[in-house]
């Protein structure tokens, strides 16, 4: 699970990119807290062959699940 809450652009998507490049996992969970990060990671996931689901919790945080 990658915790990218509170980080400026482009850290959240960069952390995802690093994980995908080094381990190419079948499933990856990421927690972020801005819509910008959600959209950036969604675009990255789609461009790299992952499907993605987004769940928002009561604390205005988003749990993203990337899967192949």
């Amino acid at each position: 699970m990658i915790d990218a809450r509170g980080l400026s652009c482009p850290m959240p998507v960069l952390m995802v990119q690093k994980e995908v490049k080094s381990k190419s996992p079948d499933k990856l969970e990421v927690c972020v807290d801005t819509q910008t990060a959600v959209q950036n990671i969604t675009r990255f996931a789609k461009a790299n062959g992952y499907s993605i689901t987004v769940k928002e919790n009561e604390d205005e945080e988003y749990l993203l699940t990337l899967s192949k």
């Binding site: 652009c9 482009p10 990255f44 461009a47």
Partner: peptide, 19 residues
């Protein structure tokens, strides 16, 4: 739209993301 002048070039260089 999150338009950003620095982000445009940065994302193109780092992620090949041209949005």
């Amino acid at each position: 739209s999150r338009l950003c002048m620095a982000g445009g070039i940065r994302d193109a260089v780092m992620f090949k993301d041209f949005k």
